[in-house]
Design a protein around this nucleic acid. Structure first.
Lengths: 190, 190
DNA sequence: CGGTATCCGGAATCTTACCTCCGTATTCGG
DNA sequence: CCGAATACGGAGGTAAGATTCCGGATACCG
């Protein structure tokens, strides 16, 4: 599936980068409602050009979301260095959440809102989950968090957190942080 | 604003009820993407008829969401009877969440996803918040939950919970319950 | 520098709902 | 039972956005 038959022509490469950047900006700002024409315009490119690289709006969005998951994996990996097991887990969550504060589209993606299939994202999710699994196991082994937690709970908590983030939208006060702290407190064994 | 100039004609009344019921069913099932034509058809009524009662899709949806908030208020009020302050709060949340399990549209509404204005809902929200405020204060006075919680946190937690509910959509396992329990555990003072 | 494989732009097309309109049908007071 | 006053149905208008198409540029190879 690797499509590198020939390195893109110079202009094409340049446009691809512009498109990706613009899409990230507009999707972040307006969520999945951002329009293809606007993205093309923002990138200073014709719509046809956009569609040559990404055959579909969903494909474009998926590419961006994948990148986010990869970033999540990087963050999680960095947090494995933290010595305190609970801290490692909590920091991973806090940092990941903080990293998507302004990205409405990704928040929606985490909530599974639009009926996209997100094809090709499984790989990245699996890679991320592998790290998260280790992080969680370590915390459990140390008795720092409930024993009944599963990896899926991590994603669920991120889902809930991004939801409150989206919910608060325009509001100045970052109430979602409190929500996350409540969740983190709730992780501790009773 | 009370529109009771004349009691609806018999057939109109009957149709109104059908429409409301069908709308509830379809919105619950398909979320806000449910279509007006389908709702009319499900109610065995023409689209024109639907639009005479509800001038807009948003108006229809708003009516249903209002009803949900009113139900929330009833539940919260019932929970005020519970003697243990923490239990009262927790039960209110658990029961409210449970009551909207199958209602995708309401879950979306809680997440503030669609850009609807939900005109006329403020009243009901305020009434609900009054009760929730009492519930929360009582728990705090008893030292059963963190002192830094605010009423808005309740809504935020419900938002997070409905998000995980929507997220899990088709899956058989009700993972969102665990999410809620984590939140509830996190409410306790440290 | 010519030839060709790649690309570009953006008007036009297609699709999907929401909502309007108006001729016909039904209810209800007297 | 009659005549408004209300309601009903559903074809058609309209708008918004995604996606396609293709004649005209551009970049790269030798």
């Amino acid at each position: 599936m690797t499509t590198d038959q020939r390195p893109l022509r110079a202009d094409a490469q340049r446009n691809l980068e512009r498109i990706t950047t613009s899409a990230q900006v507009l999707f972040a700002e307006r969520g999945t409602r951002a329009q293809m024409e606007d993205i093309a315009a923002h990138a200073g490119v014709g719509i046809g050009t956009l569609y040559r690289r990404f055959p579909t709006k969903e494909a474009l969005l998926t590419a961006l979301v994948r990148k986010r998951f990869q970033e999540f994996a990087v963050i999680a990996a960095e947090c494995e260095e933290i010595s305190d097991p609970y801290d490692a887990l909590a920091t991973s969550m806090r940092r990941q959440a903080e990293s998507v504060v302004g990205d409405a589209a990704f928040q929606l993606a985490m909530m599974n809102i639009d009926s996209f299939s997100w094809d090709g994202i499984e790989e990245d999710k699996a890679a991320l989950n592998a790290i998260l699994g280790r992080l969680l196991e370590r915390a459990q082994a140390a008795g720092a968090v409930r024993a009944d937690l599963r990896v899926e709970d991590y994603g669920m908590m991120m889902c809930g957190t991004t939801a409150t983030m989206y919910f608060m939208h325009a509001l100045p006060e970052p109430g979602w942080r409190r929500h996350l702290e409540i969740l983190l407190a709730g992780l501790k064994p009773t």
